[in-house]
Simulated assay, not measured.
Amino acid sequence: MNTTGRPRSGSRAALRASIALIVFVAAGFGLFMADAQNRYLWVKALHVIAVISWMAGLLYMPRLFIYHLDQTVGSEASETFKVMERRLLTIIMTPAMVLSWIFGLWMAIEIFHFQGLWLHLKLLAVMGLTGTHVYMAHAVNRFGSDQRIGTSRSWRLFNEAPTVLMIVIVILVIVKPFG
């Protein structure tokens, strides 16, 4: 609670995100009770929603690090960036990554039976995205303890990794160049 007796904005944001996540997961589990013909389309839709959310975080986090690097350690702005980075990671990115994996693996098992070189290459690229996520989580922890990690230039370059992996993944899924 703040001095006005109202919940802090972070508490409200976490509550809203938790409710959204619960609804999303409940919808996902409800799908397993749906008829088999429509289940794939619903799982695919939820997978795409989760991936878009995850990608948004993967593309935004390096920008936050760049802006954070410009702030003086201990300043109000630096403390604000710590909160923004932690919330982006824990409320959006990590749940979206987990849901992307859950729905993606369901499709890989149930629909594609782990068949096709395109699927194996896609999974390899998704592991690359997961690696970038883990590295950013490490950076959030470092920034959170006032350790500067990287430079503005290195984070601008690092920001290209999720973009390149996303392009590869989309081509593999849509074109399926390797059958």
Score class of each variant (00 low, 15 high):
14 A>G: 12
74 G>R: 11
84 M>R: 15
42 W>T: 13
61 M>K: 12
142 R>F: 00
20 A>V: 05
30 G>Y: 09
135 Y>W: 09
106 W>Q: 08
56 A>E: 05
73 V>S: 12
84 M>H: 07
25 V>D: 03
112 F>M: 13
105 L>F: 14
33 M>C: 03
91 I>F: 03
114 F>Y: 13
22 I>P: 03
22 I>R: 07
18 S>N: 13
67 Y>R: 15
97 M>S: 05
75 S>E: 11
129 L>A: 04
20 A>S: 13
70 D>A: 11
48 V>I: 11
128 G>M: 10
99 L>C: 04
56 A>I: 13
91 I>D: 05
44 K>H: 09
81 F>M: 07
54 W>I: 03
64 L>S: 02
118 W>C: 03
41 L>T: 10
84 M>Q: 12
54 W>S: 01
56 A>R: 10
75 S>W: 05
52 I>M: 10
68 H>R: 15
111 I>Q: 14
96 A>R: 11
145 S>L: 02
73 V>P: 13
83 V>D: 08
49 I>L: 14
78 S>N: 15
12 R>H: 11
92 I>A: 03
135 Y>T: 07
35 D>E: 13
112 F>I: 02
70 D>S: 08
103 F>T: 15
51 V>A: 06
20 A>E: 06
141 N>V: 01
89 L>I: 01
71 Q>W: 01
29 F>E: 12
113 H>A: 08
88 L>V: 06
44 K>W: 00
73 V>R: 15
42 W>E: 11
101 W>N: 09
107 M>A: 07
88 L>Q: 10
53 S>N: 11
129 L>E: 09
30 G>L: 11
38 N>T: 14
108 A>G: 11
60 Y>L: 15
92 I>G: 00
141 N>P: 00
80 T>D: 14
72 T>F: 01
77 A>D: 15
43 V>N: 05
18 S>Q: 12
54 W>V: 00
93 M>A: 00
57 G>E: 02
82 K>R: 15
94 T>Y: 01
137 A>C: 10
119 L>K: 14
36 A>G: 07
97 M>E: 00
123 L>C: 02
36 A>M: 12
33 M>R: 14
137 A>S: 15
75 S>I: 06
83 V>K: 15
101 W>Q: 11
31 L>P: 07
118 W>T: 14
22 I>E: 05
104 G>E: 03
125 A>V: 02
39 R>A: 06
99 L>Y: 00
82 K>L: 01
142 R>T: 03
54 W>C: 02
